[in-house]
Amino acid sequence: MSNVAGATTSREEEIAFLALEQVLGVDIKLADAGAGNKKPDGSWLYPDEPRRQGIVEVTSPPAASLMREWARAKKEGRPQIESGSIALRWNELAQVCAEMFAEEWAHENLDKLLAHPADERHLFLFSRGHTGGGHYFYRLSDSYADGSNERVDDLVLPHGISDVWFRGRAQRDIDQPLGSTELWLARFQTGLGWHRYVVRIEERQLPSPNPRIADDDVPAGWRLLKDRSIKPAES
Rank of each mutant, 00 (worst) to 15 (best):
V4I: 05
G6M: 08
E12R: 11
E13C: 01
L18I: 09
L24T: 02
L24C: 05
G25K: 05
G25W: 01
D27V: 12
D27C: 11
I28M: 10
K29R: 14
D32S: 01
G34W: 03
G34E: 00
A35C: 01
D41Q: 07
G42Y: 00
G42Q: 01
S43K: 02
S43Q: 03
Y46E: 14
E49Y: 12
R51H: 11
Q53L: 08
Q53S: 07
G54A: 12
E57G: 02
T59H: 10
S60Y: 11
S60M: 11
S60T: 15
L66A: 06
R68I: 08
E69V: 02
E69T: 06
A71P: 06
A73H: 04
G77C: 04
Q80G: 04
I86C: 10
F101C: 05
E103G: 07
E104W: 03
W105T: 01
W105A: 00
D111W: 08
K112L: 05
L114P: 01
L114M: 03
D119F: 09
D119L: 08
R121T: 10
H122F: 14
H122R: 13
L123Q: 01
F124S: 10
F124R: 07
L125H: 02
F126I: 05
G129I: 07
H130L: 14
H130M: 12
T131N: 03
G132R: 09
G134Y: 04
H135L: 09
Y136A: 05
L140R: 03
D146N: 14
D146S: 09
D146L: 06
G147P: 06
S148W: 09
S148L: 11
E150M: 04
E150V: 00
R151Q: 14
L155R: 10
V156N: 06
V156S: 11
G160R: 00
S162W: 09
V164T: 11
F166P: 03
F166C: 01
F166R: 04
G168K: 05
G168H: 07
R169W: 06
P177M: 10
L178A: 11
E182R: 12
L183T: 08
L183V: 15
W184E: 15
T190D: 13
G191L: 13
G191Q: 13
G191C: 13
G191S: 13
L192F: 13
W194L: 13
Y197W: 14
Y197S: 07
V198F: 03
V198N: 04
V199G: 05
R200T: 15
E203C: 09
L206N: 07
P209D: 10
P209C: 11
A214P: 04
A214R: 14
D215H: 14
D215E: 15
D216L: 02
D217G: 06
A220R: 08
L224Q: 15
L225G: 12
K226H: 09
S229N: 02
E234P: 03
S235D: 05
